[in-house]
Write a protein that binds this DNA or RNA. Structure first.
Lengths: 141, 141
DNA sequence: TGCATCTTTAGAAATATTCTAAACTACTTG
DNA sequence: CAAGTAGTTTAGAATATTTCTAAAGATGCA
């Protein structure tokens, strides 16, 4: 019974969701998916996710966390956000949205893009097509 | 009359410009400044800049390149652009502008922001103020 | 010139991520 | 459901980028 209506994910059947994404639902991947996709949207780094999953007593190596994050991203389950040099964030919100980045404490916040318009962007370089437009609003405390 | 109106720098007196920025015009910093600020705007990484300056026969260590890039950025002479995980780009264009990032070959292109409008961004998180709005248009070949 | 301060440097260290090859596990087939 | 195989996980090594350290060197002021 879904307690969290604002949850990122209606179905808690993580094994099935992994299978649909073309990934074998191993113990590690299911544990990672549970932490990532249960409850509201979130932002993690490889390190922070590793720490969280280890706390659930399921053995996972850091290498597996990196593997899984890359696979989840490639499968469209996560979005990678690059805002700070030397570290990648992964966002469980894969819908259209943009980010506030609090530079003073390396904190990331989503905001919906449906009200945002970006106008006046010139034509992309010859031979290329736009894959995404990111708006990053950098703020400080 | 200046032939290169689009040039990044009117004056080629790099020592003086460093002094104005509060930096001692050492041999290494002047050599780096020459490569960076002579001619049109450009994008470099620490590695690429190191390779270029070494080619001018002036001895510079990679550590000094990192130091100088950080100092130039802090002094407002450069802008750091974070678009790809694991590497920083530095942009000699410090005016208002945004970027195309060609993901397929890690290439960065500026475009002026004076025609660009970003509307509908919500209020920033409480207690913060906006330091900059970056628009990154990601494209692929 | 003399000297205090700032800068550079090589190499070590820190940080983040990927790779390797061996052990392990999920899924399929018989 | 035993066995095979193909995909996964893992520890540890390797790679990549950036920063740190402490010693040597350069700069600019008196």
């Amino acid at each position: 019974m879904a307690l969290h209506m604002s949850s990122a994910n209606p179905s808690p059947d993580f094994a099935e969701r992994l299978r649909e994404a073309g990934l074998r639902p191993t113990r590690q991947r299911v544990a990672l998916a549970r932490v990532l996709f249960e409850g509201d949207h979130r932002h993690v780094t490889a390190e922070s996710l590793h720490a969280e999953v280890k706390a659930t007593k399921i053995p996972v190596s850091l290498a597996t966390v990196y593997n899984a994050l890359n696979q989840f991203r490639d499968a469209g389950l996560l979005r990678e956000v690059v805002v700070a040099p030397g570290r990648s964030y992964f966002d469980t919100n894969i819908g259209h949205h943009h980010h506030f980045f609090v530079e003073t404490d390396n904190e990331l916040h989503d905001f919906p893009s449906h009200d945002v318009t970006v106008e006046g962007v010139p034509a992309p370089p010859a031979g290329t097509q736009v894959s995404r437009v990111d708006v990053i609003v950098r703020v400080r405390r």
